[in-house]
Design a binder for these strands. Sequence first.
DNA 1: AATGAATGAGGATTCATTCAT
DNA 2: AATGAATGAATCCTCATTCAT
Lengths: 199, 199, 199, 199
Amino acid sequence: MPRRQDVSETRKNQILDAAMAVFARSGFHEARMDDIVQESGLSKGTLYWYFKSKEEIITAISQRLFATDIEQVEGLLRAEGTVSERLQQLIHDRIQGLQDMSGMVAILFEFYAVALHQDGVRQFIKAYFQNFHELLVALIEQGIERKEFRPVDALAAATALDAIFEGLIVRWLIDPEAVQWASLGQAAIRLLLDGLKQE
Amino acid sequence: MPRRQDVSETRKNQILDAAMAVFARSGFHEARMDDIVQESGLSKGTLYWYFKSKEEIITAISQRLFATDIEQVEGLLRAEGTVSERLQQLIHDRIQGLQDMSGMVAILFEFYAVALHQDGVRQFIKAYFQNFHELLVALIEQGIERKEFRPVDALAAATALDAIFEGLIVRWLIDPEAVQWASLGQAAIRLLLDGLKQE
Amino acid sequence: MPRRQDVSETRKNQILDAAMAVFARSGFHEARMDDIVQESGLSKGTLYWYFKSKEEIITAISQRLFATDIEQVEGLLRAEGTVSERLQQLIHDRIQGLQDMSGMVAILFEFYAVALHQDGVRQFIKAYFQNFHELLVALIEQGIERKEFRPVDALAAATALDAIFEGLIVRWLIDPEAVQWASLGQAAIRLLLDGLKQE
Amino acid sequence: MPRRQDVSETRKNQILDAAMAVFARSGFHEARMDDIVQESGLSKGTLYWYFKSKEEIITAISQRLFATDIEQVEGLLRAEGTVSERLQQLIHDRIQGLQDMSGMVAILFEFYAVALHQDGVRQFIKAYFQNFHELLVALIEQGIERKEFRPVDALAAATALDAIFEGLIVRWLIDPEAVQWASLGQAAIRLLLDGLKQE
DNA sequence: AATGAATGAGGATTCATTCAT
DNA sequence: AATGAATGAATCCTCATTCAT
């Protein structure tokens, strides 16, 4: 009967799901524990049975949100196709991901803001950034090896790429009309990629 | 007697300076009005004499922080030198500006987060972004006209440039070691600029 | 206009008076801050403006309750009459004092219990005991000098006297009928005093 | 199969032992049921299987703590030796008892405080006091009969004796250094006994 | 008998804002 | 203009107790 084993895991997820929904709707500070209680369908006591404070819930969500999918990353490195194509694919996937969870993106900044005061959160985000960054470095190096790209500074190029990506998100959240992902966003990123290519 | 006016202006600045310091240190929500009172050296009553709520203080700071210096912008468009040089200069100035107020940069995220819930704040930031963006577009177009740059999509190029800039700030705040402005940051930006140049 | 000077002192006393009444009625733990608020006629905010926690109120009361009246003590040492008479007087006064505040005596044990976990409280009580003890020692030594008393161990005699006193209070609180102060209590204490006298 | 019964008894004792330890450490109100659960090594459900509330545990402990050992008492009345010797012995035994459970003595005050609000507890303590008191009365009367003591008021003398004893405990708990049982405590008690003796 | 997850009423404390002076 | 004491609604969290298994 291992059915009972993971009630605990189920409950935690139930709580985190509810919390994310509430946070996305109201922001961290406007969100009341009671809202999460209601959204989750559990009781207040149960919430505190699994997480000992609101802060702990926030941290847990950040952990989940900024979890890095190593498999996907490794897969991409060994996948077929030109590096350029795979970079495009990677970026496309990420944009897709953002749009899928567009309701949640709003809390991204809440997390960035929290990160500056709560180190646990900062670490998760940092790891996430690093991970993405390293993947880009590896891909770009592959591109240089294969003579697809000019022998640029891979580190700088990767830094530029993930900065551009992150920057577009910022701009998008503040001014959605200014960043039409399908057109302008893609074009901006392509511009950089084109600069890398071997003429 | 325009001196009267000044006292009022002085007080407001005194309050906003104090508030910025406190906000940068603790974030908007952890910051207590009492903290600002203490930091400012004024009394609680005086605070509320000049600003009728915490929100109003936040809005006032965002207005100040995201004020656009039209003069500087226009000047840059008419300045001497190659477009490339002037872009480098612009970026260099901004990095300098960031580093000068490095303690304050932390509140940037607070504002971004707030912007999603408070439209007044969003408008200031949006205008600021747009302004910078338009300047970049104009400069790049100038570069294209003068044959310094290839005939790229100026809009996309500007979008890429300001995204890269904003993205580097995000990364920097979360992981300061990862972004050494003087080296990596500059290199990343130059990479993009190089891509624009006429070969 | 010094009228305003001691609003602060007035408020604090107002709060402590209310708190004592409530504590005597309900005990420390049953007493709700709201009860004190109501009893004091002030607002919750005001309570917390003057005392930053329930614990602080308890400590402040203990300080007030176990304050030692040095003047009275010194006076007694220089007063006229035989030492024996003055000891009787001292004890009589204390019994009187207890009976006057009989409603409050109930919280004595609350304080003793708290003292074991809260050092601030313990110190006040300790000082109070020591003060009373030293007075007894001085009086008994005076009695020995004046040949009213036998050359007993003044320290031991004083210890016995204040122990007997404290012990009677304990017994009284648990079993009021068993200790009729006017008769049995006095008799018990006199018995000890008689043992001290020069035959 | 009376062994069953024993398990039940064992469990109850296990719980009460744990509860006493926790109560002595933290006081009744700071002590959490969870602390007792942990200390006992049992589960929360089991605790509530044997005692239906925290109050019931407290009452059970008071019953245990203030149980009167009739046998010992009766024995002492019929024992050999002078009354004075036996009183000394009695007091010595009690002091010994206190010192053996010195860690637990702290909860004495908790019980005294509780007694004022919870009548069940008060009755146990009252009976305990009365029992001790009656024993003292009987012993002193024996002493008077046997001409060991002066024809004092036995009731008053006994009251004085148990008050002194209880008072010393109070003083000791608040200020351990002030009451060195072996010296000062004994001396104080002896002083009273000496006063009773036939010259 | 035993477990421990679940409950929710209850309580201490905070803090933006007001207002008499 | 300036002060700072006063307010009280709002909120997080605790913890004794229950109950399905």
